[in-house]
C-alpha cells in the first residue's frame, strides 16, 4: 500500500468518524414486516423505488419504457420440511378483459423443477392450471397466451433484456431454487410472436434463450462500462447497462455500423455513444470531442469490433466525430458517423 492510499484510508476514516447512526430498530422491524406483506401489491401498482428497471425500446422507436419488476416470492405455506418452492404473480399491465395475470408456482426436487401456471381471472379466481416439469439447469419457457410468456432461467442471472416490443418482469429472489423467473409481456401490439431473451450470467457471459453464450464485449471508457452483444440467431444486437439498469435487445437492422447509437443519458447528464465497425474492421482510432474518452473491444468471436465514447459534460454531440479503422483488405478507412 502506498502513502497516498494510506492517507486516503485514514482521511476517509477521519471524515466519517464523527457520524453517529440514528436508526430505529423497531421501526425497521415494523417497516420490514410491512414491506414484506405489501410487496406483491406494490409491485402490481409499480411503486417500488428499488426495483430493477429494464428498458425495452419499442419496435417503432418510441421512447424508453421503464418496467417495474421483481415480485418477491411468497413462501408457500409449509407444515414440514419440504423442497424449495415459491409462488409468484405476474400481473398483466394492460390485461385482456377475461384475465389479469398469471400465477406461477415452482417447486424444486433435486435437479427437476415442477412449474404450475394458472391464469388469474378478472374476478380474482384462478383458471385451470397447467403443470410442467423441466431441468433446473436449463432455460425453459412457456406461453401463457400470445401476449405473455413465462420463462425460467438458471442462475446466476445479472440482467435480462427482452426483444424489442416486449417488456420483462424479473424475479431474482429465488436463490433456494437456483433460478430466476421472468415474465415477458407484449408491449407493442404491432410486433410479431415472442422471439426470446438475452441475459447476462456469471463472468460477463451473455446468453440467449437457447442457453448459448453469444458474442459480447465489455466496452470501457474511463469509469464507464457497458456490455454489447450480437446474436445472429435471434437477429438482435443490444447492450446491458448495469449503471443505469437499462438493457435492450434491438433488431439487427438498427445496429449502429458506420454510425453511433446514443445510450440513454446517465442521470448526471453524462453522454455515452456506442457503435460497431464494419464487418472484419479492426484497430479503430476514434476522433472525439474535447473531454470525451473512448475504448473498443472485439465482440466475442463475431468478427466485429465495437467502440464506446463517454463524456461527463460534453459541450456538444455526437462525441465521435470520425472513426478510422483497418478494413478486411488491410486498408486504413475513415468514416464520420
Amino acid at each position: 500500500m502506498n502513502d497516498i492510499e494510506e492517507r486516503l484510508r485514514a482521511g476517509l476514516r477521519e471524515l466519517a468518524e464523527p457520524v453517529d447512526a440514528r436508526v430505529d430498530a423497531d421501526a425497521a422491524l415494523a417497516g420490514g414486516a410491512r414491506l414484506r406483506r405489501g410487496r406483491l401489491a406494490r409491485w402490481a401498482s409499480g411503486g417500488v423505488a428499488l426495483a430493477v428497471l429494464i428498458g425495452v425500446l419499442a419496435w417503432n422507436g418510441l421512447p424508453w419504457r421503464q418496467v417495474v419488476a421483481i415480485p418477491d416470492p411468497i413462501a408457500v405455506p409449509t407444515s414440514a420440511p419440504r423442497a424449495p418452492s415459491a409462488m409468484l404473480s405476474f400481473p398483466v399491465s394492460d390485461p385482456p378483459q377475461t384475465w389479469t395475470g398469471a400465477r406461477v408456482s415452482v417447486v424444486r426436487t433435486g435437479d427437476r423443477l415442477t412449474v404450475e401456471l394458472a391464469r388469474v381471472q378478472a374476478n380474482g379466481d384462478e383458471g385451470a392450471s397447467h403443470t410442467y416439469t423441466t431441468a433446473a439447469g436449463e432455460f425453459w419457457s412457456v406461453p401463457v397466451d400470445d401476449d405473455l410468456v413465462v420463462a425460467v432461467i438458471p442462475n446466476p442471472v445479472v440482467s435480462v433484456a427482452s426483444l424489442a416490443g416486449w417488456d420483462v418482469s424479473v424475479n431474482d429472489g429465488l436463490d433456494a431454487l437456483g433460478i430466476t423467473v421472468v415474465g415477458v409481456q407484449r408491449s407493442n401490439p404491432a410486433v410479431g410472436a415472442y422471439g426470446g431473451l438475452v441475459w447476462r450470467g456469471a463472468n460477463f457471459d451473455v446468453r440467449n434463450s437457447e442457453g448459448a453464450v453469444i458474442p459480447s464485449a465489455v466496452l470501457e471508457a474511463g469509469d464507464r462500462s457497458v456490455i454489447v452483444f450480437r446474436d445472429e440467431g435471434l437477429g438482435v444486437w443490444g447492450y446491458l447497462d448495469a449503471y443505469n439498469d437499462v438493457h435492450a435487445a434491438l433488431p439487427m437492422a438498427s445496429e449502429p455500423t458506420g454510425a453511433v447509437y446514443d445510450l440513454p443519458k446517465n442521470p448526471e447528464g453524462e453522454v455515452t455513444e456506442i457503435g460497431f465497425l464494419p464487418a472484419r474492421g479492426r484497430n479503430p482510432k476514434l476522433t472525439v470531442r474535447d473531454g470525451a474518452m473512448w475504448g473498443s473491444a472485439a465482440v466475442g468471436d463475431s468478427g466485429r469490433v465495437a467502440f464506446i465514447a463517454f463524456a461527463v459534460s460534453p459541450a456538444s454531440t455526437p462525441l465521435v466525430t470520425s472513426v478510422t479503422y483497418t478494413d478486411a483488405s488491410g486498408k486504413r478507412m475513415t468514416y464520420q458517423p
Binding site: V19, A21, R22, V23, D24, A25, A27, A28, L29, G31, G32, A33, L35, R36, R39, L50, D72, A75, G173, D175, A176
Partner: peptide
C-alpha cells in the same frame, strides 16, 4: 440523508431477513 438511507436499507434488509 445518510441516516435516512441507513434506516431504509435496514427496513429492506429485514424484509428479506429470512433469505
Amino acid at each position: 440523508i445518510a441516516n435516512d438511507m441507513v434506516q431504509e436499507s435496514l427496513t429492506r434488509t429485514y424484509a428479506a431477513w429470512r433469505r
